[in-house]
Design a protein around this nucleic acid. Structure first.
Lengths: 329, 329
DNA sequence: TTGTAAGCGTTATCAT
DNA sequence: ATGATAACGCTTACAA
């Protein structure tokens, strides 16, 4: 039972391949009788067109690359799911690659995807490979940056207002009378980490609180680095009474650290980026900056389809505002 | 700057397209001088072969479909990540589709993917579409079932021993002197849910405990259904002292339910399928049946590459054994 | 060792 | 309204 081609259908239906193609694509003229008949034959033989041949001929792959730092992170996958839905509706498929925050893997991924002739690229980048990303965009592949920005690259971007949210987090802690606030930041190669750090610093400055370098520690967005950061902070002569953590994984590590040190989980007030599902289940002082991955995904999906449809209007820069949810609300 | 083709390279290098192709694929004979020269030209012009044209000619798409019920579930995405790595290494790309447990969407997904001429299909199915899955396999597309089985379909399967693990869970609770055990099962259309229910029933039977129908409630693997199940169980004249829950989302719902009802979180002993990350952070009596998504992914990845490489040996049925981790360990 | 050319399954142009 | 056929970019007999 070898794969059927358009020729088989043409022969069976007693018409030319051109006619079959016209029926398949609802293009050109074809009489109703023939149309019905052809569709009947197609159904009878259970013919499925070959998307690869079509792609070659039309020079359109109908595929979109999506490059993420961590495929197991529900934040990114909530974004991805919304995009996938939209693409599926429109007949596009997504090629996923997981870079594990590694710029070298990211480079390989970009090479791989360009060979696969993706029509667009959705990227939550590691921070590296600027030239290549630029080149990809220059080659006519639509690039949409998501969650993370690249300064100087004029590309569509959908991300959250990290500076605003971080500043709000610090203001919240200050209002609660905290003055020594530990700041656990992420890798400065990543734009979100830079922005969250910056927002926090602005918050402190505007409140007239001097920046204490020993209270600012840099993790790498992993759980272990959060635990480590907590240990360092609590080992200070004058430890913080509150902590601002730049992502959810590190915050998880912070609580594990408290447990290891025998500190009550509510002895330190924490504000953290990212949705932390368990937070509703126990009494600790954890406030959360809720992000909007699903909304981001929908916006990216719409923008993507518009761009693929030929929309050449100016580069868009969409900003969503995360919401601070205090722990007692 | 229109896309370069093999002809451009051939002209520039002063050789035929066949030679370029040979260099590109390390196939046939080509003298070292020419090889060097061609590679030089390729690099200079930054030529990238067109994977679509190659696919058409070779009748190999180098693509693999992966159909999952929930792309945001870290369990499935841990599986997927391991597969993605392996595929990427081998030059295959993955087409993801999320079915949201909906058999109709699954059907659309399968149609979509066969048009895209996937060479293999990784499926964590909804339970429906048996004929189509059979047909896909019959058409020479390698099918690997993951996590969930289809009885009567002779297909490679990599899954966990749900019956054994569920039985062990019940035995554990019985050993802790529980006699009234609430069982929160999943949708019986899904094989894992059926198996987990069955294992639990075997455990009770072997201990000589009569099955109490009112203690067996069926959820749908969602958080809300877990909360709902707890409410129903606690409304019984004689509520259970322990609960066996068939997945992690429902367990989360159970704890939310306890909180809503004002029950102390450690007033009921729970054993649950699935990794529950927060469980280490607070004192409740939650034991967990740890699954092995990463291992599953690696096994599937290896099997997949073997099958794509032409391994036609008998259908494999790999079974991993999840481990019960008691809450005090 | 290298080149020529047919062909993969479509679509689209040009006739008819 | 329908049909022939060239072309998409590559691989691979077959020839030289």
């Amino acid at each position: 039972m070898t794969k059927l081609t358009i020729k088989d259908i043409a022969k069976e239906a007693g018409v030319s391949t051109a006619t079959i193609s016209r029926v398949l694509n609802n293009s050109g003229y074809v009489s109703n009788d023939i149309k019905q008949h052809v569709m009947e034959v197609i159904r009878k033989l259970n013919y499925q067109p070959n998307a690869i041949a079509r792609s070659l001929k039309q020079e359109k792959s109908r595929s979109v690359g999506i490059v993420l730092p961590d495929m197991t992170n529900p934040y990114f996958m909530n974004i991805a799911r919304a995009i996938q839905h939209r693409c599926f509706q429109e007949g596009y498929h997504l090629l996923f690659v997981d870079t594990e925050e590694n710029p070298d893997k990211e480079k390989e991924a970009l090479d791989f995807l360009t060979e696969k002739r993706i029509e667009a690229l959705i990227l939550a980048g590691t921070g590296g490979n600027r030239e290549q990303i630029q080149a990809i965009s220059g080659a006519g592949i639509r690039v949409i940056l998501v969650d993370r920005r690249y300064s100087n690259l004029k590309l569509d971007t959908v991300a959250e207002d990290n500076i605003y949210a971080s500043k709000a987090a610090i203001e919240y802690l200050i209002e609660k009378n905290h003055r020594r606030i530990g700041i656990i930041g992420g890798p400065q190669s990543i734009s979100t980490a830079r922005e969250r750090r910056q927002g926090a610093m602005i918050g402190l400055e505007e409140a007239g609180i001097a920046l204490a370098p020993e209270l600012m520690v840099e993790g790498d967005y992993t759980r272990d680095s959060g635990t480590d950061a907590l240990r360092r902070l609590m080992a200070l002569p004058e430890p913080p009474t509150a902590i601002f953590s730049a992502n959810n994984e590190m915050t998880f590590g912070v609580y594990l650290g408290m447990q290891q040190l025998g500190l009550p989980l509510d002895s330190i007030e924490v504000v953290s980026f990212g949705n932390l599902e368990f937070s509703s289940l126990f009494r600790h002082k954890l406030s959360v900056i809720m992000q909007n991955p699903h909304d981001i995904g929908e916006i990216v999906g719409d923008l993507l389809i518009r761009r693929l449809g030929g929309d050449d209007s100016e580069t868009e820069n969409q900003v969503l505002v995360p919401k601070l949810v205090p722990y007692e609300a």
